[in-house]
Structure formats: structure tokens, C-alpha cells
């Protein structure tokens, strides 16, 4: 089990990692999700031993490995650019880690063979890696990282160099292979689609801090704050404050406090945000009282897969809603969100 404790790191005198702590259990796939500059790749490099933290410690099964050189850690690492050795063939690349571990020659050959078979690339064995397509390189890079049977596997944006179609195609394959390996995996990405499809547990990083951790579903259903909701693109975020009468005031309307969603900790007068998901928007006037109801003008209406993505405007605020029904721009419509669909999020 990997334990990361209070890791700090600076880059160009600016804090990059601000006391990051987390754990990765046996067989667990953890995704470090964050925008570029959030420090996620640096965190990975510190775990791999390629960089030293300014302070903090890394433990493996309780043993402090912070000072252990990278080549003695036995952690597999797959790079975004794959870092396949251009002067070695496909088989030689996969065999590299095994050779470093002084595995007997016959055993190496056998493992390389199995590994190539599992990615259906046995016939590529002697090809130079420079002749492989992006997807093939990705497969070989993963096979190379897995071949020496690492104690922990880390992947740094492994699909980042591929185009969108190939990426969706490879996510499923990657998911199956990673789960089949039964290894603890740390997967770094800025792409939430990847993260949500792969992760057992998500760690959301922002400015070197852990903002939220949980299963994809938990994170999706209950984002910890407005930043998470905005980063994940969960929907419209409306600035809001609690008024004296216990109601919530926003620029687009007032609603009675939904007790289920807004914690009492949001003090009177405090600024926070309401999350209004486009898919929860209902047309027409609300039947019950505890709802946020608005009358807005349609700005734009775009057909998107099996619904219409409608941009409406009210009091200089622009909102996105999804609807089965199309509307002409300029038309005034009624939209409301029920109390249980509204989330209050700290800023």
C-alpha cells in the first residue's frame, strides 16, 4: 500500500504541491485529476523517485522510501510521450525492465511473448518502435511498464497524445488491462471523461491541494465546492447569498432554503454558488413551492445528440438547459429547478 504524507514542493519559488496526502490500496485504481499546473505530474514523479519533495514522506507498506533512488523502487511508470527507446525494437523495449532485474534470458523471452500476445502484437516483435502508430505505441508502452511486474503502476496522461476517437476506443481496453493486472494504479489525467471511466477513486487536485476525493459517482453527485462543479462542467453556477428571512437570494430569483442541500454552515450573508444542472431543468411553472423558477429569453438552440441544448438569458445571466423540445431564439419560456435538484456549493 502506498502512503503519501504531507508532500510539499516548489517550482521557481512558487508553491506547486501544498501538503498533499493520500493513500492507494492494493488493487485500487486512483485517478489524479486536475488541470495543467495543478501539480499532478510532479506528484507522480515524486512517487516514482524522479524528483525529491521539499518536505513530506512517501511510504510503501509502512516503509519510508522517500530517499530511495528511482531504479530501486520497483514502480512502473508510463509516460505521456511513452518514452519508448527509439534505438530498440518492440521486444527489446518490453524486455528492458526484465533485463535490469537480471531475469534469466528464457524467462524474459517468454514474458515478452506473452505480453505481446496479450496486446495482439506478437508479429510486431522485431519492428522498430518508431514505425508504430500512436495506438500501437501506447499498447507497447503499457506492456513495457507491466512486464517487470511492478509493485505499483503509474500512468501519466497515457492517452494524452492520441486523437479523440482512438482515445475513446482505448479507454475500455486500458480499463480491462489495468483491472486484470490487479495492481495498485495511479492514473494522472486532465481529462474527466477518462478519469470517470477508469477510476475506482478520484483525487481532484487544484493548485497543489487535494480538493475532493471519492468515487466518480460521489464526486459527480456531490461536488465539494463551486470549483469542482465548474472544473467538471456540471452545469450553471449562480452566485447566491442567504437572505435574512432564511431564503436564498440570487441574481435571477429568490427561493426558499432547500434544507436538504444547503448545510447550515453557510452563514447568513455568506456568498456561495447554486449549481443548476442543465439536465435537471424543467419547462413550465413549478407545481410545488420550493423551487427556483425563472422566466427567461431563448438566445440560442442547438440540436445535440438526442436533446436540444438551449441557451437562455435572464437579467444578464446566461444559463444552459437541456430540453426535448426546440424553441425559436427570442421566445420567452418558463424554466424551474426543483429543490432536490439544487446544490449549494461553497466558493
Amino acid at each position: 500500500m502506498l502512503t503519501v504524507k504531507e508532500i510539499y514542493k516548489e517550482y521557481d519559488a512558487l508553491p506547486l504541491l501544498n501538503g498533499l496526502s493520500f493513500e492507494v490500496a492494493q488493487g485500487e485504481l486512483v485517478c489524479l485529476l486536475g488541470s495543467s499546473g495543478s501539480g499532478k505530474s510532479t506528484m507522480l514523479r515524486i512517487i516514482a523517485g524522479l524528483e525529491e519533495p521539499a518536505s513530506g514522506r512517501i511510504f510503501w507498506n509502512g516503509q519510508d522510501i522517500t530517499q530511495l533512488p528511482a531504479h530501486q523502487r520497483g514502480f512502473g511508470l508510463m509516460f505521456q510521450d511513452y518514452a519508448l527507446f527509439p534505438h530498440k525494437s518492440v521486444a527489446e523495449n518490453i524486455a528492458f525492465g526484465l533485463r535490469m532485474a537480471h531475469t534469466p534470458k528464457e524467462e524474459i523471452d517468454q514474458i515478452v511473448r506473452q505480453s505481446l500476445e496479450s496486446i495482439r502484437m506478437l508479429s510486431f516483435s522485431d519492428r522498430p518502435v518508431t514505425e508504430l502508430s500512436g495506438g500501437e505505441q501506447q499498447r507497447v508502452a503499457l506492456a513495457r511498464a507491466l512486464a517487470p511486474d511492478p509493485r505499483l503502476l503509474m500512468l501519466d496522461e497515457p492517452l494524452g497524445a492520441l486523437d479523440h476517437n482512438l482515445r475513446t476506443e482505448l479507454i475500455n481496453e486500458l480499463r480491462q488491462r489495468l483491472h486484470a493486472s490487479q495492481k495498485p494504479v495511479i492514473y494522472v489525467t486532465h481529462d474527466q471523461e477518462e478519469a470517470f471511466a477508469l477510476a475506482d477513486r478520484l483525487l481532484l487536485l487544484h493548485e497543489g491541494r487535494l480538493i475532493q476525493e471519492g468515487s466518480p459517482e460521489e464526486v459527480f453527485r456531490r461536488p465539494a465546492n463551486a470549483w469542482v462543479a465548474s472544473f467538471l462542467g456540471l452545469g450553471n453556477l449562480i452566485p447566491a447569498a442567504r437572505a435574512k428571512n432564511g431564503q436564498i437570494e440570487t441574481e435571477i430569483g429568490t427561493l426558499a432554503l432547500p434544507t436538504s442541500s444547503c448545510p447550515e454552515t453557510l452563514h447568513q450573508g455568506e456568498q456561495f454558488s447554486l449549481l443548476l444542472r442543465p439536465e435537471d431543468a424543467q419547462l413550465g411553472l413549478p407545481a410545488q413551492e420550493n423551487a427556483l423558477s425563472i422566466q427567461a429569453q431563448v438566445l440560442d438552440c442547438i440540436f445535440f445528440r438526442d436533446y436540444f441544448r438551449i441557451e437562455v438569458t435572464i437579467k444578464d445571466q446566461s444559463l444552459i438547459i437541456y430540453s426535448q423540445q426546440a424553441f425559436q431564439p427570442g421566445k420567452e419560456i418558463f424554466v424551474h429547478w426543483s429543490e432536490e435538484d439544487i446544490l449549494c456549493l461553497p466558493n
Partner: peptide, 16 residues
Amino acid sequence: SLREAAQSMGANPWRV
């Protein structure tokens, strides 16, 4: 990343 990949697969500096 090439050197780092080799390192992470267990190559010491001279081997790298």
C-alpha cells in the same frame, strides 16, 4: 523521459 523510463524500470545511472 527516456532516461526516467529506464530508471523507473530499475536501471542505475551507469546502465541508463
